[in-house]
Each structure stands twice: as C-alpha cells, then as structure tokens.
Design a binder for these strands. Sequence first.
DNA 1: GTGAAAGCGCTAACAA
DNA 2: TTGTTAGCGCTTTCAC
Lengths: 345, 345
Amino acid sequence: MNRRASLLDLAKTLGLAASTVSRALADHHDVSAATKARVRALAAELHYQPNPLAAGLRRGRSNTLGVVVPHLTGYFFAQVIEGIASEARQAGFSVMVCQSDENAAHEAQAIELLINAQVAGILVSRSDATQDFAHFEAARQQGIPLVFFDRVVEGLKGPNISSVTLNDYLGARQVVEHLLAQGCRRVAHLTGPLTVNIHRHRHQGYLDALAAAGLTPDPRLTVLCELSQQGGGQAMRRLLHLSPKRRPDAVFASNDLAAVGGLQVARRQGVRVPQDLALAGFSNEVFTTLTEPPLTSVDQRGEQMGRTAVQLLQRMLPAAGQHARTPRGIVLKPHLLIRESSLRG
Amino acid sequence: MNRRASLLDLAKTLGLAASTVSRALADHHDVSAATKARVRALAAELHYQPNPLAAGLRRGRSNTLGVVVPHLTGYFFAQVIEGIASEARQAGFSVMVCQSDENAAHEAQAIELLINAQVAGILVSRSDATQDFAHFEAARQQGIPLVFFDRVVEGLKGPNISSVTLNDYLGARQVVEHLLAQGCRRVAHLTGPLTVNIHRHRHQGYLDALAAAGLTPDPRLTVLCELSQQGGGQAMRRLLHLSPKRRPDAVFASNDLAAVGGLQVARRQGVRVPQDLALAGFSNEVFTTLTEPPLTSVDQRGEQMGRTAVQLLQRMLPAAGQHARTPRGIVLKPHLLIRESSLRG
DNA sequence: GTGAAAGCGCTAACAA
DNA sequence: TTGTTAGCGCTTTCAC
C-alpha cells in the first residue's frame, strides 16, 4: 500500500519545481505547452490526485459547495439536490447537504457550519419560518457567494448573491386558466404564508387568472393553511361547509400534499373529483400519478434548477475571471401537467 | 471583518504554546485542569472554530463522512440521510452525499471521489447492479472504514466493515402472516433480483410464512420483476391472467412502488382491493397513505438506520480507543403498518 | 504538564 | 517561462 503521489513527487521525477507543476496542472497560461504535456502525462501515469485539503488550506477555502434545504423527504428537493450534485461533480466540487427542518435556528446553524467548513459557496432554499437573515449576511461578508433557489430572500440583493426560481406566477396562472377552461367558475386556492415569494406569486397568478376571465375573486375561497396533508384536509373541510352557492367547483392547492389531503376529504364526503370538484396541486411530486384520480400539477423542474444554481454560483467565484461576481436572477418556466383530477372531459 | 481566531492566536494571548492549546482543546489527559479551563474560556470568548482543513491535512484525513446511495428521490433513502446527517453533525462530522443511480460504474466513481476527498469513513447502500466490489476493497485498504446499510455486500467482511440492516425476513414474514390471517390462501410475491440480500430475505420470509401455515408455495405466484410502478403493473397483469383457480387472492410486493403499480392495474380491471385481492408493499413510502385504498406496508426505520450507521462507523475510527475497529452487524426490527389495502374486516 | 520543532501538500508572491 | 521561498493552521513526536 504505497502512499498516493504528491505534487512534489511529480516535480522531483520531472526535474521541475513544485510551483511549475502546480501551474501546469492548473493550465496556467504562462507554462510552456511542452512542460504542460510532460506534467500531465506523468500525472496520468501515476494517477495523481491533488489533495483537496491542502489546496483548501492554502487558498483559505475548500472545494465543497454547501446546500441548505428545508428537508430532503420530498421529491422536489431531492431532485434539486440530484441536479446540484451532478453539476457540481462535473465542475470538480463536492457537495455538503444540510437541512433546516423549516426552522430558522437550524438554518442559521447550518450556514454557520458551512462557513466554518470554508465552503466555496452556498446554495440555499430558505425555510418558510426564517425572518432574520443575518446568517446570510454573515456568509456574504466572508466572501462566500450565495445562490438562492426556489425560495429566495427578497430583501437580499448584491454582488455576491444570485437566485434561480420558478415562474410560480405563470405556473399558477396556467393552472387556474386550465380550471376555468374546464368550465369551473368558483375556484378556491389553498396557500401558504404570503411572506414567502413562491406562495405570494402563486396567489397572484391565481387572482390574475380569475380577473382576466372577468371573475371577481371571493376572499372566502382563499384559504391560508399549512400545506400538509392534514392542513389541506382541514381547508377542504372548511370549503365544503360553505353554503351550496358559495362552495367552490375547483380547488387549486399551492402544493401537492395539501391537494391530496383535500382530495381524500372530498372523496370521503362523497364529492366526485373531478365532476363535482376539479382539483390541482403544485410541484409534480411522485405520488401525483399514484392517487385516485391522478393529480394535475405543475412541474418545478427541480433538476434543472439545481444545475442552474451551481452554474450561477460558478460565475460568482473569484477564479471565474473578469466577469466574476456578477449576480443574476434566473427564472425557469413551469410545465403544467394535466391529469384526471381536473379533467371534466 | 476580522480574521477568524486561530489556535496560535489563543496560544499567544494565553502565553502558552500552540501544542498545549491543541491538547487542551482535545481534552488530552496530561494537560492540567486549570490550563484546560483557561483555554476553553478564551476559545469560547473568541468564538474559536478549529480549521477542519488544516486538521485534516495534518492527520491525513478529513472530518467528512461519505455517503453513497442508489438515489435520493424516494422516501427511504432520504430518511436515512436525514438520520445520518443529524447524527454526524452531533459527532462533529460533515456529510458528503453521492448517488450511484443503481449503476456500478457510478458507484465506483463515487467511492473513488470519497477516497480522494480523504473522508473519515464511508456509509453505503450498494447499487443493485454492482457485481464487482473492488472499489469497496480499495477503500478498506486505504484504512477507510465502511458501513453498509440496508443493502450489504455479503461477501465482504472484515475488520473495517460493519453493517446495519433491517430484518427483512421478519418484515416479510409478518406481512404474509397478516395476509393469511385475513383469510387469504393464494398469496403472490413480487420480488427483485434474489442476488440482493433484501430481496432474498424478503422472499424467504414469504416462503416460510406460507410453510408455517401448512401451505405449499406455488412458484407461478413468485414474480421476478422490476420493482417500479410499471414493473409492478406488468407483474399484476400477468397474475390476473392466470386461470381463476390459480389466481392469487393476495399480493405482497417487495416495495411500495410496485405495489401501487399493481394496485392501479387491479382496480382498472375491476378487481376490488382488498375484497377480491389483498395488497401489501414494503418500505412505508409517504404515498402509502395517499393511495386509494391506503397501502399496508413495512416501515424500514430509515432514520434509525442512518443514526446507527454513523454510530457503527465511529466505533471503527482510530480515535475510538481500545475497542476500535470492531466490526459489527446490527439488525433492526421492522414495523408492520396495516392499512386498508389488506384489511378484509 | 508544557514547549519547541517539524511538516502535512499545496499555492502565490516574488525573483531570476 | 521557471524556480525559490514562505506559509496556510493544525497535530504530533520528542525533549524538558
């Protein structure tokens, strides 16, 4: 079991200085092509692998990207992380994943952990509960670039901060337009806290779709609830208790879990979906094709979002050259997926 | 923006040598209690955070644990990773997650990446496709301890290898005993490749439960299929094509996705679940409570498995003292969760 | 019980 | 274009 080859080993056998080998491997412009070739050949032969710990120590930052998500159990975030992991690996980065559990304190702790680990950058989808954003500022002040994905912190802008989001407004609007096209006239909306960008945008899309169709939104049909199976069930119960005239003929839930919770309550009360009540969710979770009937939803393009987030981060890294530190905000287009729960044929 | 305090900073302000401070912080036994107290007080005051890169470089290994899973999108592995991440953090480790996509080459690549990153240990659930286990041997030979969870490599045993699994045999046996108790007599089994421990054990549990009830297993009722929604659907179609006498009155699928695929096909063909056909899966995925009817399943205790895996790893680390490097195999008890899909009341 | 010294493997300023 | 030098922050002999 022989020690792994070090850069110095390469240098010695080639009769070069360590620094030259280092530069050659980094493809530094003022190393002769011949030298580069020799170095690369030997490196390949010896299966040289740079020691990331040493490089990190020297540079003052590791080659790891930090990721903070509210949780992992849920198709969307898992997908995003798959995208991040795959894109990061191609760029030579490792990925460290932390979860905030929708808890502001955990989120701050995670950021601290990542700063401490001297990550090259942080990708984060903020917890719904977070109100104080000092921890993000702290990262920025350490010179660690931040990319927000899906759930952004809207006040935070600046040279070291980018974002990639879904066009939630458009997604919601398309859902509601589809429901209206099915002949629905009283469309209800189950929403999360409107302080969070995604929920606010989806709600606005809902309102505007109604307005565009010449309908006046009924405030009783917008229900603020926890976007869980239980929360969706409760909200549905409330809606079904309305007088027949006021009762909705369609429900658009801001996520799939709440939609399914609502679906179950409705069916148990003998409401036929989609004939009596058309239903749609948001996120395109795996289980949307497994429910009875399958659930109309909006795909959030998780993997693409993850890949894009890493690309945005790379642009903000010092090594990226001249155009470095350009903050950007990318908005992805949603995909409406129409399934039986909203199809009145 | 002042530089983070280094160990040397502490040493200087206390009039001590760096080595003493280092030992004090590591709670080394021959540092006086008084000195330890002074050091700790100042460290706390200055919010001293050791530089993990430097420590890692010096020690020749980082404070990161590597995790390799087939994929992230799926409740079980996400749960395990939550358990791992939480336990690892408590022990002062970071976690690096890689996915193999059920692909042997990707898996080998991931292990190589982790070895290269000088992780302190590797936690892995092997891909179903892997046949060649040289990459695991390589890790072991680098002195990197391995813990297999859920899916183990059965040939690999030794001083640096532990495992934590579910008692799949028992889980399967409980499921089938429950189905038999519901009055079912022709129980079918949808299984994955029997080369993988989990599938083989589940199948054996199935066979033994039948035998214990005095029934002779009908080989036509064991269907080897891809354990996906589609695969489960196809298998169910095949079973329903059997002559009425041979047709099963219960199906136990080795995972939930296949069970739901089967459920959909059955319902579409007018088979009533559970009256005509009782159904059970395995894994307790989130969606098991969302199907119509909700699906009986076996909880795999993902989070517990993740926590246990990290604990086993710690026992194998050099620092763990005398009893270090003790390999262990822990087997967790499954929890049968009976839901409507198998309840004939 | 504490200190001095060396070095993990790499990179970056500066010199040639 | 290449080499020299220094040092990132920590741990670990070895000496006292």
